[in-house]
């Protein structure tokens, strides 16, 4: 921890933003992923996250390198390709007090790891699941991923003829209670959503369109910085109010809708474009599909249902981390073994 100085204000825990950084990024200059990393650092700082409780998970790919670039006070696990969700599942069960952040990419989650994505969401594993989505494989130098838009082309001129898989509609279909899409170039929106994500109990699916400046930023790409910026349709202005601040915040009545989390935190949603209700699951599906057909990126909080029980509750686990349970609680007595042996005689 660095000593707070007047130039670097501290949060309620006494940490400065510097306490939430990681090691230096080795990604390409201008990579959208670095902008996301910056917002994670900011949101963790503003949300007063205890760094030691953070567990960061990733698979393989450019995006999967990024957990090393934020919250050095937390533990990181860069695992194998497409298998980050099962790692987060295991750790979140071992210690339910961990704050789990999984960072994945469109290749890691929508190709090799689709199965694990689907089942982690279905189980409502307590984690923020970030997909840094650029429609391309960067580390292997520019092949299409499964989120690449139909008709999009590579630098080499190759055209993608296959339909994309959309992580957001898939997540809503699977019953995810917090689904959002953001653009790495819109830090305000991303910051608000990340803060809300930190307060959420179950799986948060966050699809962040993050242009690849090296392999997918040319004019014929539908994931170039310019193309996404031109086709980004934010649904609403979002504000997040942590439970501890609820009393202090004056919320304008009328046009702003509030969604309350179990801990008392609130998301304030002020619609911009249309009458979009993020609590309406079927309406959300319809709106997203319609926007995709128009070639637009609908961004913001696409669907929210804060009441779904996370996996540890579904399994009725004790409140204390399983990892720290004592032998006296875990090991049945000699009398129990005796009873079992008698039953087998």
């Amino acid at each position: 921890m660095t000593t707070p100085t007047p130039a670097s204000p501290a949060n309620k825990l006494g940490f400065t933003k510097q306490d939430y950084v990681g090691s230096k990024s080795t990604l390409c200059a201008g990579c959208g992923h670095d902008a996301i990393t910056a917002q994670i650092i900011n949101a963790a700082f503003e949300s007063n996250i205890e760094g030691y409780r953070v567990a960061k998970f990733s698979g393989i790919g450019c995006s999967s390198k990024t957990p090393a670039y934020f919250i050095n006070q937390g533990w990181g696990f860069n695992s194998v390709h497409g298998r980050m969700p099962s790692m987060a599942t295991g750790a979140s069960l071992a210690n339910r007090q961990l704050i789990n952040i999984g960072v994945s990419g469109d290749g890691d989650s929508m190709s090799i790891g689709t199965g694990q994505f689907v089942h982690a969401v279905r189980r409502n594993v307590a984690m923020i699941y970030i997909i840094e989505d650029n429609g391309v494989y960067g580390l292997t130098k520019g092949q299409f991923s499964a989120t690449a838009d139909k008709g999009s082309s590579l630098k080499s001129g190759a055209v993608n003829e296959l339909p994309p898989i959309d992580p957001c509609t898939l997540a809503i279909e699977l019953g995810c209670g917090f689904v959002a899409r953001c653009f790495s170039g819109n830090p305000k929106q991303l910051g608000a959503i990340l803060k809300a994500a930190f307060a959420y109990q179950g799986t948060v699916v966050l699809d962040i369109i993050s242009p690849c400046v090296t392999f997918n930023n040319h004019d014929a790409s539908t994931r170039s910085y310019k193309h996404v910026k031109d086709h980004d349709f934010p649904l609403h202005d979002l504000g997040f109010i942590q439970y501890s601040e609820v009393e202090d915040v004056d919320i304008a009545a009328g046009e702003t809708e509030l969604v309350t989390f179990p801990d008392g935190s609130k998301v304030a949603i002020k619609a911009i474009h249309e009458d979009y209700d993020p609590k309406d699951r079927f309406g959300a599906m319809k709106a997203i599909h319609e926007s995709m057909e128009k070639g637009e990126f609908l961004t913001g909080l696409l669907y929210i249902n804060p009441t779904q029980p996370p996996l540890p509750d579904l399994l009725n686990l004790v409140d204390e981390p399983l990892a720290s349970l004592d032998e006296t609680l875990l090991k049945p007595s000699p009398a129990v073994l005796d009873d079992i042996m008698k039953a087998l005689m």
């Binding site: 567990a55 998970f57 696990f77 695992s79 298998r83 969700p85 099962s86 790692m87 987060a88 599942t89 295991g90 750790a91 069960l93 071992a94 210690n95 961990l98 694990q116 981390p321 399983l322 990892a323 720290s324």
Partner: peptide
């Protein structure tokens, strides 16, 4: 994945 991550986290 579950087994190794749980072990890593102390279970």
């Amino acid at each position: 994945g579950v087994v190794l991550a749980a072990g890593w986290a102390g279970a």
